[in-house]
Design a protein around this nucleic acid. Structure first.
Lengths: 159, 159
DNA sequence: GCGGACATTGACGTGCGCGTCAAGGTAAAT
DNA sequence: ATTTACCTTGACGCGCACGTCAATGTCCGC
């Protein structure tokens, strides 16, 4: 086979990862460079290996970018706040600094609330826009049914 | 007064128009330059005067840009297709070319349908994203209520 | 008819989000 | 060991959507 099928365990190297995530390799490297993706694991030779979690993260970035229209800088801050939570869930075996973690959880919560608010606002505006478009479509339809009922049989009503 | 209050009839010159539409003057000129806005009427001296219709159009452009994330080039094509309809509704007093107009109406209809489909898709994805965010928020909340019920009273469960 | 706010047309600059080479190094099958 | 496909790190380029001067002209209240 000419394709890359050499993933030690569900890990993908950049070619397949990019294809699967529907982005370019450049984009993956760029996101890493900009701190949106944590540096993925590497093979001995230096080839990048993307974990399933990395892939999920790419999807998340794409959604924030395409759906909500955030800049990569904004997205970076958001997922950084979110990541705090991940780190907490996985490796918290000493709970001396619960209050400190609570601070970060609250931050992450604020970020999430902000995103929710923004989604709600956007969805409301989009719903309104949709209504307008529906009305528009109705007008087209009625014009068409009125003026082009069957074939090209016109009939002038006035003089 | 230092502000411009010299609009012959609800017409605004670029300063107030930009403020009202919440864009810059540069943006208005740029949109005109790119064909997104039809050249507005001018005063004798050459100052631009924006009609209420022009203002509506700016809002429409902003929505397509901010809500749906279209490029200005895309938006131009869309509103061109839509404009065909406007021209038809206002100055169609000879109906010799009904079929020709029907063609353009159909085009405008297609554009509208495309926009509707895109909105529906985006809204669906946003709804899904919203659900995820809600779940996220729930987790934060439960963590907080669990770990910071009152003040900093910790209690280690294991040994 | 003058002053100051507001406008005009260039034209160059800018930040973002990548695209696109170039010059190499690596992986894995033969 | 060689081939060939895939990868690496620079580094420059680019298109979009404006920002930002600069030089000049216009509007209008006094």
């Amino acid at each position: 086979m000419a394709s890359d099928g050499s993933q030690t365990e569900g890990y993908l190297q950049i070619g397949e990862a990019a294809a699967k995530a529907d982005v370019t390799q450049r984009t993956l490297r760029y996101y890493e460079e900009k701190g949106l993706l944590k540096p993925p694991t590497r093979m001995d030779g230096g080839f990048r290996l993307y974990s399933p979690e990395d892939m999920e993260r790419v999807q998340r970035i794409k959604e924030l970018r395409d759906l909500l229209g955030f800049s990569l800088a904004d997205i970076k801050e958001m997922i950084e706040a979110e990541d705090v939570k991940e780190q907490i869930r996985t490796q918290w075996r000493r709970d001396a600094d619960v209050s400190e973690k609570a601070v970060e959880i609250r931050r992450a919560r604020e970020v999430t609330l902000h995103q929710i608010a923004l989604i709600d606002e956007k969805m409301a505006r989009m719903a309104e826009m949709r209504r307008q478009l529906d009305g528009r479509k109705q007008k087209y339809d009625s014009w068409l049914t009125a003026n082009t009922s069957a074939e090209a049989g016109e009939r002038d009503p006035g003089g």
